[in-house]
Computed example of a mutant assay.
Amino acid sequence: MIELTDVTKSYNPTVKAVDDLTLTVRGGEIFGFLGPNGAGKTTTIKMMTGIAKPDKGTIRINGRDIASSPLEAKKQFGYVPDSPDLFLRLKGLEYLNFMADMYDVPKETRKERIDGLARRFDMSGALSDPIQSYSHGMRQKIVIMGVLIHDPHVWILDEPLTGLDPKSSYTLKEMMREHADAGKTVFFSTHVLEVAEKLCDRVAIINKGVVLFCGTFKEMQERFQSDMSLEKLFLELTDDE
């Protein structure tokens, strides 16, 4: 579970990047976080992961406060950033073992998980190569694998499908569904609204730091008394603002 209560963040005296945000993401659901560029999505995610500090408010990951208990909170989640260009001089397997060391994953467990993830993402033949030799999509896959190596309860994914080939994209969506169906939490931001419409149990739409809607797609259609797609409803909602 992810709980944000009265969270606010400003980068200058006149504009709030996130304005008094309260949001609960439950276990057992895939939660989509949607908004135009500059809406406050990445700032929110950075505060959730402890990269940025809110001006006020509290953030809890599985009951652990990210401000007062950062290490315990960070053990609860895996975070895929919006750029996969990390640790480029390491080989794929070196990176995965580094991530496993970070989270104290036993050697027997990590080998099984690395082998399983490599098979699912078609990366078995590339793990001995340096990450800087990978394509953008392969870098995205190795970052996702590193994030999942400690089997975190909460997944926080910032545009995770960017650069993935269709098969890998399908695999990740399948894994997200499996994770949520096991009673765990998936929080992800995306600009691909068709994916959000099909995949998410609930969505939140944020614009100018304020959540304009939070709920199921059906609830959004009922609110607007419309059978329009999520994409059209999103455009109508954000244009009105």
Results as ranks from 00 to 15, higher is better:
residue 48 M to K: 09
residue 49 T to P: 05
residue 50 G to S: 12
residue 51 I to T: 12
residue 53 K to R: 11
residue 54 P to G: 15
residue 54 P to E: 08
residue 58 T to W: 14
residue 59 I to Q: 07
residue 60 R to L: 15
residue 62 N to W: 09
residue 63 G to L: 14
residue 63 G to N: 10
residue 66 I to G: 05
residue 67 A to Q: 14
residue 68 S to L: 04
residue 69 S to P: 03
residue 70 P to D: 10
residue 71 L to Q: 13
residue 74 K to E: 10
residue 76 Q to M: 11
residue 77 F to S: 02
residue 78 G to N: 10
residue 78 G to K: 05
residue 79 Y to K: 00
residue 80 V to Y: 12
residue 80 V to A: 08
residue 82 D to N: 15
residue 83 S to M: 07
residue 84 P to Q: 03
residue 87 F to D: 02
residue 89 R to K: 11
residue 89 R to M: 04
residue 91 K to S: 05
residue 93 L to K: 08
residue 94 E to W: 07
residue 94 E to F: 10
residue 94 E to N: 02
residue 96 L to R: 03
residue 96 L to G: 04
residue 96 L to E: 01
residue 97 N to S: 06
residue 97 N to K: 09
residue 97 N to E: 13
residue 99 M to F: 07
residue 101 D to P: 00
residue 103 Y to D: 01
residue 104 D to S: 12
residue 113 R to W: 04
residue 113 R to C: 01
residue 115 D to N: 15
residue 117 L to C: 06
residue 117 L to T: 08
residue 118 A to N: 14
residue 118 A to V: 07
residue 120 R to L: 15
residue 121 F to S: 01
residue 123 M to Q: 11
residue 125 G to F: 09
residue 126 A to Q: 13
residue 129 D to E: 14
residue 129 D to N: 03
residue 134 Y to S: 04
residue 134 Y to G: 10
residue 139 R to A: 04
residue 143 V to K: 01
residue 144 I to H: 10
residue 145 M to N: 02
residue 146 G to T: 06
residue 146 G to S: 02
residue 147 V to R: 04
residue 148 L to S: 04
residue 148 L to T: 05
residue 149 I to K: 01
residue 149 I to F: 01
residue 150 H to K: 06
residue 153 H to D: 15
residue 153 H to E: 12
residue 161 L to Q: 05
residue 164 L to F: 05
residue 165 D to R: 00
residue 165 D to F: 00
residue 167 K to F: 05
residue 167 K to I: 03
residue 169 S to L: 10
residue 170 Y to R: 09
residue 171 T to M: 02
residue 174 E to Y: 13
residue 175 M to V: 06
residue 176 M to Y: 14
residue 178 E to K: 12
residue 182 A to P: 05
residue 189 S to D: 09
residue 191 H to Q: 12
residue 191 H to K: 11
residue 192 V to M: 10
residue 192 V to S: 08
